[in-house]
Simulated assay, not measured.
Amino acid sequence: MAIELLYFAWVREAIGRDGETVEPPDAVKSVVDLIDWLESRGGGYAEAFADRSLLRVAVDQEFAALDAGLEGVREVAIFPPVTGG
């Protein structure tokens, strides 16, 4: 299953790209599994995903929890918490 990943803010800066298309292994069933798999790539991925409490996600353009499933998902956006004023 191909998933389009989008990275924003310091997540994008740590990884060094604003997005990519990945084909995670079959064992990747949730967003947190996806993040674990990405983090195992090392380098900027390990840096970006080291503290999960600083991450928010959107799955197919809807805010979601890190334990959200990936069945049928086309896009996952990963970003830090956003504040506005």
Score class of each variant (00 low, 15 high):
49 F>V: 05
21 T>R: 15
85 G>Q: 01
64 A>T: 04
70 L>G: 06
51 D>P: 06
69 G>P: 10
17 R>I: 09
61 Q>C: 06
10 W>K: 01
47 E>A: 15
85 G>I: 02
54 L>K: 14
58 A>K: 09
47 E>D: 12
68 A>I: 02
64 A>R: 09
85 G>M: 02
6 L>Y: 00
72 G>A: 10
39 E>F: 06
61 Q>P: 04
19 G>D: 12
44 G>K: 13
14 A>T: 05
69 G>T: 07
10 W>V: 00
49 F>C: 00
3 I>F: 14
63 F>W: 12
72 G>E: 08
10 W>Y: 06
82 V>K: 10
62 E>A: 11
63 F>G: 07
51 D>Q: 11
30 S>A: 14
25 P>L: 12
72 G>V: 09
34 L>T: 10
75 E>P: 00
37 W>Y: 05
74 R>A: 14
20 E>K: 14
71 E>S: 15
15 I>F: 05
19 G>L: 14
71 E>G: 15
55 L>A: 07
39 E>R: 15
62 E>P: 07
2 A>H: 13
32 V>D: 14
28 V>W: 06
76 V>H: 03
50 A>N: 08
83 T>Y: 01
11 V>Y: 01
84 G>L: 07
27 A>N: 13
40 S>R: 14
21 T>I: 12
35 I>E: 08
77 A>T: 11
57 V>W: 06
28 V>E: 04
70 L>S: 05
48 A>C: 07
26 D>Q: 10
63 F>R: 14
82 V>M: 13
59 V>W: 05
52 R>Y: 07
16 G>W: 09
24 P>Y: 03
10 W>I: 00
77 A>Y: 03
20 E>H: 11
5 L>Y: 04
13 E>M: 01
56 R>S: 12
39 E>I: 04
80 P>K: 03
68 A>E: 12
